[in-house]
Simulated assay, not measured.
Amino acid sequence: MIVVFDAECLLCSTSVQFLLRHDRRARLRSATVQGDVGHRLLEAAGIDALTPDTWLFVDGDRC
């Protein structure tokens, strides 16, 4: 599962760090909205990557 988040948001960044630290099965990956992968995932889900106001969780073909 990939979580896409805004790396410029302190709350978002801290929350993702918390999730990754507590992911005992090592199933989570992260991508930032500002990066190429995160940008493409948001656009594929129909979310404006230039003005994100949400997190996106991608699990296979499901968002």
Rank of each mutant, 00 (worst) to 15 (best):
T51F: 08
Q17R: 09
C12V: 08
C12M: 09
L50T: 13
A7L: 04
D59A: 14
F57V: 15
A44Q: 11
L10A: 08
G60N: 03
C12F: 06
A45H: 05
V37S: 05
H22R: 10
E43P: 00
A31M: 12
D36V: 07
S13N: 15
L42V: 07
D23A: 10
F18P: 01
R24F: 08
S13D: 14
R21N: 05
D36L: 14
V58L: 07
I47L: 04
H39A: 09
P52K: 01
L20H: 03
R40F: 05
D23G: 10
S15Y: 04
L41W: 09
A26N: 15
L11E: 05
D61E: 10
R29E: 06
F5E: 00
R25M: 09
D53P: 00
D53R: 10
A7G: 11
L42E: 00
F18K: 04
V16W: 00
R24T: 09
A31Y: 02
S13L: 13
A31T: 07
Q17F: 04
R24D: 12
M1W: 01
S15M: 05
C9T: 04
C12G: 07
I47M: 04
D59Y: 03
P52E: 13
R29M: 13
V4M: 12
W55K: 06
G38M: 10
R21G: 01
R25Q: 05
C12P: 12
L11A: 11
D6M: 08
I2C: 01
I47T: 02
V58R: 01
D59H: 03
V16R: 02
R27Q: 13
A31V: 11
S15R: 11
D59M: 07
D48T: 03
C9Q: 04
P52C: 12
T14W: 03
D53T: 07
V58P: 00
L50F: 07
G60P: 00
E8L: 10
W55C: 03
L42K: 02
S13I: 15
L41Q: 08
G38T: 09
R27W: 09
E8N: 03
V33M: 00
D36P: 13
P52M: 13
D48V: 06
L28Y: 02
R25F: 15
R62D: 11
G35I: 07
A7V: 12
V37Q: 14
D23F: 07
F18S: 06
V33N: 00
A45E: 09
M1R: 12
L50R: 14
R24A: 12
R62T: 09
G46Y: 03
F18G: 00
V58A: 10
V16E: 03
I47R: 10
F5K: 01
I2R: 01
R62N: 14
A45V: 07
V4A: 06
M1D: 04
D53Y: 02
